Computed example of a mutant assay.
Amino acid sequence: MTIETLRRLPVFAALTPDEAQSICDRSLRRRYRRGEFLVEHGARSEALFVLLNGRARVLQVDRRGREVHLARLRAGDYVGEMSLIDEGSHSASVRAEAQTDVLVLGRAEFSRLMPEPSSLAYGLMRGLVQRLRSANQQIQSLALLDVQGRVAETLLSMSESVGTERVIREPVSRTRLAQTVGASREMISRVMKELEARGTVRIQANGWLVIQQ
């Protein structure tokens, strides 16, 4: 790949000629057939993947094996950057929808082009990645889970571990819970009553909510 071709990709447009040449020298070009996965949910990323042509689909699979499509990627789009920045795992899978050529930039070269880990810029980037992961998780929850599942997931995320139980040390607002999971307050009240009736959750006299594990 030439420097000129590389710098036509939006993610590399601001690179200096030396930086662009370094990426040309150290990156790989990989071809994925239709149906092959570029990245898989839960795996750690060791590279940045930039689509040069073709197209790919970002997807998740629910508990029943049903695919939920979250986004479509085309030439110029990229994946894997969040995992390279915060060293977390992929929050979704990406599958080629047609023959797709991808530029693969390894972790070492990616890190060389990034700000120093101790810098303010890097700290801000990690913070943005965490916010994006949180937003992605909420979007996926809305797409993959029913209301009861979304309520349970939200309660777990609000709780802390105390012995064999999970505890929320403050009153849980039905209105705020409804806004978080995208349901009516009436539906939330019904779901909470069902969870209490099954013994999944209980409200203590001090207002704490206890989740049985």
Rank of each mutant, 00 (worst) to 15 (best):
M1K: 00
T2D: 15
T2E: 15
T5P: 00
R7C: 10
R8V: 00
R8Y: 05
L9E: 06
P10A: 03
V11R: 00
A14H: 10
T16H: 07
P17V: 00
A20E: 09
A20C: 11
A20T: 01
A20G: 06
Q21Y: 08
Q21N: 08
C24A: 10
R29E: 15
R31Q: 12
R33N: 11
F37L: 04
E40L: 12
A43K: 11
E46M: 02
L48P: 04
F49M: 07
F49A: 02
F49I: 00
V50D: 02
L52F: 08
N53H: 04
R57G: 01
Q60H: 03
Q60N: 06
R64Q: 14
G65E: 11
R66M: 08
V68H: 15
R72C: 02
A75L: 03
D77L: 04
L84G: 01
D86N: 09
E87Q: 13
E87V: 03
G88H: 04
S89I: 04
H90C: 09
A92I: 03
S93Q: 02
V94R: 00
R95T: 01
R95W: 05
A96L: 10
E97I: 00
A98D: 13
D101Q: 02
V104D: 02
R107H: 06
R107G: 02
R107A: 13
E109T: 11
M114A: 12
M114F: 09
P115S: 04
E116F: 13
S119W: 12
L120H: 07
M125K: 00
M125G: 01
R126Q: 14
G127F: 13
L128K: 00
R131D: 14
L132D: 10
N136Q: 10
I139Q: 06
I139D: 06
Q140G: 04
Q140Y: 01
Q148I: 01
Q148D: 10
G149L: 07
G149I: 02
R150S: 05
A152Q: 10
A152C: 12
T154E: 13
S157C: 09
M158E: 14
M158I: 01
S161T: 09
S161F: 08
T164A: 11
E165I: 01
R169V: 05
E170M: 12
P171T: 04
P171A: 03
S173A: 05
Q179E: 15
Q179F: 11
T180Y: 07
T180P: 03
T180N: 01
A183L: 11
A183Q: 08
A183P: 15
R185N: 11
E186C: 00
M187A: 10
S189V: 09
M192V: 09
K193I: 10
R198L: 13
R198F: 12
G199V: 05
G199K: 01
V201F: 10
V201R: 00
V201I: 15
V201Q: 09
N206H: 07
G207K: 06
G207W: 14
G207R: 06
